[in-house]
């Protein structure tokens, strides 16, 4: 391809190393990695593992920005190792460290347990007053495209933890729920199929909840999927204030449609063909 060079450049990787059995604190170790155009940080780490130091540990899975496993601190900025090209962020030196604001298990592996604990606490799933509808659904819920758009952006979160590492408030207050769990709360609150907003408000409206956010905006800049947690958090605050003042407009909840085979066929839709099996 024109414009793409195949010549390798030596980039010095400064990688955080930490062995919990032998080290009291993390330290930096340097590796010289030959880098070609288009090579990602993840590929650089694989080069180190294969050729220079087989003891290096990190977490990864899909290699294409979907699983959210390889969130790292790259040159002082949180991002995914698999979708960050080395030459886009480094001329000669690249610092690779585990995501901050989490405990380090080993080398570049952060312990994301605290984040998932908080995430679980806000009940990130559809809550209905009538539990039988969830456990034993008898039909489907209608949702318009506009209703879907009110939360769709927030569903793209891959739980990589980059926003939690970027948040300056979370850096000083470990009890703060953080951008990821609160974005999940807004995602379900805005879903017209959900009826659990007030239940979540009891947690998101506390002193460790969404009002600890002071809009530094780093979560939205760090997010590799464009989820925009900062927007979700401000919309969550708005809803909490309106709920507190009893000024919130009543959201029309989804109506349950009939179950399979029980619905009325619209006149302009052709009937399904007869089954050919059985």
């Amino acid at each position: 391809m024109p414009g793409i060079s195949n010549a390798a450049r030596l980039i010095t990787f400064h990688v955080t190393r930490y062995n919990p059995e032998t080290d009291g604190a993390p330290y930096l170790k340097t590796y010289a990695v030959p880098v070609r155009e288009g090579m990602t940080v993840l590929e650089g780490l694989h080069y180190i593992k294969d050729n220079l130091d087989s003891t290096l540990a990190w977490r990864y899975s899909c290699r294409m920005g979907i699983c959210g496993s390889c969130g790292m601190f790259l040159n002082g900025r949180p991002g995914l190792a698999c979708n960050t090209q080395i030459l886009h962020i480094a001329d000669a030196n690249l610092t690779v460290a585990p995501l901050p604001n989490f405990e380090i298990i080993r080398d570049l592996v952060p312990d994301l347990w605290t984040m998932f604990d908080k995430h679980r606490s806000i009940k990130p799933y559809i809550l209905r007053i009538n539990e039988a509808e969830i456990n034993d659904p008898a039909g489907e819920f209608y949702q318009s495209p506009q209703q879907l758009e009110s939360y769709l952006q927030f569903t793209y979160c891959i739980k990589c933890g980059c926003c939690m590492a970027a948040c300056p408030t979370l850096a000083t207050d470990a009890r703060y729920l953080g951008p990821m769990p609160l974005t999940a709360a807004q995602r379900y609150n805005a879903d017209t199929r959900d009826e659990g907003r007030r239940e979540r408000n009891a947690l998101t409206g506390t002193s460790t909840g969404v009002f600890r956010c002071h809009y530094a905006g780093e979560c939205s800049r760090a997010c590799p999927k464009g989820v925009d947690p900062a927007r979700a958090l401000q919309l969550l605050k708005r809803r909490l204030v309106l709920d507190y003042l009893h000024l919130a407009r009543r959201i029309k909840r989804c109506e349950k449609l009939h179950g399979p085979g029980q619905g009325k066929l619209l006149p302009d839709i052709a009937a399904a063909p007869k089954g050919t099996v059985g």
């Binding site: 930490y18 919990p20 604190a25 993390p26 601190f73 002082g76 900025r77 949180p78 585990p98 995501l99 901050p100 604001n101 989490f102 405990e103 380090i104 298990i105 952060p110 312990d111 590492a165 970027a166 948040c167 300056p168 979370l170 850096a171 000083t172 470990a174 002071h214 809009y215 530094a216 905006g217 780093e218 800049r221 760090a222």
Partner: peptide
């Protein structure tokens, strides 16, 4: 496990520097 919390340094470092962070 090593506690990797940034603390006060997190106010200054740890993110992609933007106007809103300076304002913060």
């Amino acid at each position: 496990r090593y506690d990797n919390r940034l603390g006060i340094w997190g106010w200054l470092g740890g993110g992609r520097w933007g106007a809103e962070r300076y304002a913060y």
